[in-house]
């Protein structure tokens, strides 16, 4: 049986993936695909005035990742970190690597 916490975490990760886009996608010179345009428009239209920056996100990332691993509701607990990860490909990438790293040691 699938662990409900794991299911919740997977849903959250899926949302992050589709939202902030994938970094390693190969771009052709002078063109882009519709998915990239969609991600850009989504990113623009969901912009908030009160976003936190990368340093503030980094400060809270350890607590955030532990909540994700525990299957807690992150949108309620740390909405600004979640929002930052949806808009910052660098921090999102670090979060994903940290999550994998922690799973390997627990």
């Amino acid at each position: 049986m699938t662990d409900p916490f794991q299911k919740k975490t997977s849903r959250f990760l899926k949302k992050l993936f589709t939202f902030a886009g994938t970094r390693n996608k190969k771009m052709q010179k002078g063109s882009m695909d519709m998915d990239t345009i969609k991600q850009m428009v989504r990113g623009i239209m969901t912009t908030r005035a009160d976003e936190i920056d990368c340093a503030e996100c980094f400060e809270q990332l350890d607590q955030f990742v532990e909540l994700v691993l525990a299957g807690k509701n992150i949108s309620d607990a740390m909405p600004l970190v979640q929002h930052h990860l949806e808009h910052c490909p660098d921090c999102k990438e670090e979060f994903e690597v940290l999550l994998k790293a922690l799973r390997s040691i627990t």
Binding site: N24, M27, M32, T47, A49, D53, C88, P89
Partner: peptide, 30 residues
């Protein structure tokens, strides 16, 4: 967003840091 360069590296080449670059992009999105 288009070329997929990391903020860190774009910031370095633009003579700023990642935090300031995020703020610049945030302002652009707003």
């Amino acid at each position: 967003r288009i070329q997929g360069m990391p903020l860190e590296e774009v910031a370095r080449q633009m003579g700023t840091n990642r935090n300031s670059l995020y703020k610049l992009l945030h302002d652009a999105r707003l």
